[in-house]
Design a protein around this nucleic acid. Structure first.
Length: 231
DNA sequence: ATAGCGATGTCCT
DNA sequence: GGACATCGCTATC
């Protein structure tokens, strides 16, 4: 089944988020391919969502969110984590859906290798549980920011085609080839507050914009947003 | 259950 | 310059 056209992603994240559940997100690079069945996501909107990176307008980091849907918004945080979003909506909207968890269905050995490379102790839980682990399993880095979700897989294209003029000068991180295949049929899902989103007013942004597949072991346990210290 | 903490890019002052 | 980040792991009550 082919990756849907870019326009498929150009809808409200509240509508797109549940459609992503059960679909397969895949990234391939020279090291190989890892794919995961998406089990948990969070919708983020723009100017009307204080929890979104795009709330305060476009910056260098979040510029990809303001592009057209169907691209990967990848950022780095907490000094050690990358996170993967799928940009939603038309260009200019600043909408996106954060991929919080998934079940690794391809390239499990590679995903395991990537985690072990950064953790002394062997992994205890699921390989793609939590946004940081999702990015790590897929091998996503800042080099993947703005990568398109396309039909082009690593198998179909040469390495040079898959990584056009990437920051390979540094020799380290390389942009992978991304694709997403929606589930054949919509899957049952539950909703609840997003994780790690808080701010002045607290409840004001406590929208139930987290979507997950009940019973999936890869879905991260809910943890209330850490209250922000106030001056 | 919950608190501490790592380790750094990004943005605001 | 400094606060904080769409955590996740680990240690301790």
């Amino acid at each position: 089944m082919p990756t849907p056209p870019p326009s498929w992603f150009e809808r409200d994240p509240l509508e797109l988020a549940p459609l992503l559940l059960g679909g397969v997100l895949r990234r391939a690079d020279a090291a190989g391919a890892v794919a995961l069945r998406v089990t948990e996501v969070e919708a983020y909107r723009g100017a009307d969502d204080p929890g979104a990176h795009s709330f305060r307008g476009m910056t260098q980091r979040n510029a990809t969110m303001f592009g057209p849907g169907g691209h990967v918004y990848c950022y780095f945080t907490y000094g050690m984590h990358h996170a993967v979003n799928i940009v939603a909506g038309p260009a200019g909207s600043g909408w996106g859906v954060l991929v919080r968890a998934g079940e690794v269905v391809e390239g499990r050995a590679l995903a395991l290798e990537r985690r072990s490379a950064r953790r002394a102790s062997p992994p205890t839980g699921e390989l793609a549980r939590g946004p940081g682990n999702v990015a790590q399993a897929l091998g996503a880095t800042l080099a993947d920011d703005a990568a398109p979700l396309s039909d082009a897989t690593f198998a179909d294209s040469t390495l040079s085609d898959a990584t056009p003029a990437g920051p390979s000068a540094a020799g380290s991180a390389e942009r992978g080839a991304w694709s997403f295949v929606p589930a054949a049929a919509s899957v049952p899902h539950a909703t609840g507050p997003r994780v790690g989103v808080s701010g002045p007013g607290g409840d004001a942004i406590a929208h139930p914009w987290r979507y997950w597949m009940p019973g999936e072991p890869s879905v991260s346990a809910y943890r209330p947003a850490t209250p922000r210290r106030r001056a």
